[in-house]
Amino acid sequence: MSIQHFRVALIPFFAAFCLPVFAHPETLVKVKDAEDQLGARVGYIELDLNSGKILESFRPEERFPMMSTFKVLLCGAVLSRVDAGQEQLGRRIHYSQNDLVKYSPVTEKHLTDGMTVRELCSAAITMSDNTAANLLLTTIGGPKELTAFLHNMGDHVTRLDRWEPELNEAIPNDERDTTMPAAMATTLRKLLTGELLTLASRQQLIDWMEADKVAGPLLRSALPAGWFIADKSGASERGSRGIIAALGPDGKPSRIVVIYTTGSQATMDERNRQIAEIGASLIKHW
């Protein structure tokens, strides 16, 4: 058993032996400061991975655009179909130039040979490839079927209504393609630790998130040596930015963190910096 498999397999085991986890309101002070700095709403939640207890939250039940963070949920739905014998990670999917949409750094290189379902999930999560996400959405029946999958998990909040890139429109008060921090954190925890997916599929999902290559300026920039993080970021119109993550010290995840912001006029660099500073406060007061 690899170190990674050891880590995921023991998450339920550690729940019975973990020390009490204490919240630190200092992080919420930073979240509120980020709102002031960005001139935008910020949603935040910090969840204990083992118990599911909410440690801190700010606007946990307000809607925010999901942006590309939905791609983790999408690959969770794909893995659920794999577990049920309805899909194979090794199945190759062929597509054409007409299928390519904006920001497809991986799929645009494989027009001649296509990509496997496994490769598409990797591209969608680690590189946020939009065509990969659309191709995967097609395999499960489209955005409405992803919403149905989430409903069956008990998440009646999170919804996907459109495809890439239209889902990134982020119109104020538009509930399409949105979630709430509390709903996203709970759903992510179920995917990573619950019985919905097999152990192998849970491991695969967290491996893809751990290999994320496009979230460096966010929480990863504040991470001390030896800490673990598996994450997925997102960005969209109207100053929207977000990240969902499982992270913790000693090389294993122990908390879920979800951060969303929307409605800012700030630059992408400034949005990144504010999220990184929230992460730094979280780690300092861990």
Rank of each mutant, 00 (worst) to 15 (best):
I259M: 05
R81N: 08
A225D: 14
R238M: 13
S254H: 08
R238L: 11
Q88I: 11
K284L: 11
L38E: 05
D269S: 12
I259L: 07
S240N: 15
T267H: 10
D161H: 03
L146I: 07
I243A: 01
A222G: 07
V42L: 08
I283M: 09
C75V: 13
W286F: 05
M268I: 10
A211L: 07
R63G: 01
V82K: 04
D113E: 14
P172F: 08
L19T: 15
A211K: 12
A276T: 06
R159Q: 07
A246E: 02
I244R: 00
Y44S: 00
N50T: 14
A200E: 15
G90R: 09
S254W: 06
F228G: 01
C18W: 10
L219R: 01
R59C: 00
F22Y: 13
E87T: 05
L47A: 08
I278L: 05
T198D: 08
C121A: 06
G194R: 07
A276V: 08
G239W: 02
T187A: 05
S240M: 04
P172H: 09
T179I: 00
E119G: 09
S57C: 09
L136T: 01
V82L: 04
S57Y: 08
E119A: 08
F6Q: 08
R220I: 01
P181S: 01
D250Q: 14
Y103V: 07
P217Q: 11
E164A: 00
Q88P: 02
W163T: 07
P20A: 06
L223D: 00
W208M: 03
I125T: 03
R241N: 06
S254K: 09
L188M: 09
T267S: 14
H156Y: 11
D250P: 05
I244E: 00
Y44C: 00
F14V: 12
S281C: 12
Q86L: 11
A211V: 05
M127I: 09
T186D: 13
I243C: 05
S201R: 05
T193A: 13
Y260V: 03
A266V: 11
L219N: 02
S96E: 14
S281R: 09
A133S: 11
R202K: 11
L196V: 15
E175I: 14
D155I: 07
D36G: 15
P143L: 01
A9G: 13
E175T: 11
S80G: 11
S221V: 09
M184V: 05
S236Q: 03
T138Y: 11
I259V: 08
P249A: 04
N98G: 12
L219P: 02
W227R: 00
Q88E: 13
L218V: 02
E26K: 08
L219M: 05
N168P: 02
V82E: 03
S254Y: 06
S254T: 13
F228A: 04
L79M: 09
N130S: 05
F149C: 05
L136P: 00
L10Y: 10
S57K: 11
M115S: 02
V21D: 01
L49I: 15
T69H: 04
P224R: 02
S96N: 14
S221Q: 12
A222T: 12
G216V: 05
F6R: 11
P224Y: 01
T178H: 01
Y103R: 04
I278T: 00
A266Q: 10
L167V: 12
P12Q: 11
S221C: 09
R241V: 05
L150S: 04
T198N: 13
K252F: 11
T187V: 05
A40V: 08
M180V: 13
K213H: 08
G251P: 04
T267I: 06
W286S: 00
G239L: 02
R92S: 08
K30E: 02
V21L: 08
R41E: 06
S254M: 12
S221W: 06
A133V: 00
L73P: 11
S128R: 00
Y44A: 00
P12G: 13
V42G: 01
A77G: 06
G239M: 03
G194D: 10
D269K: 12
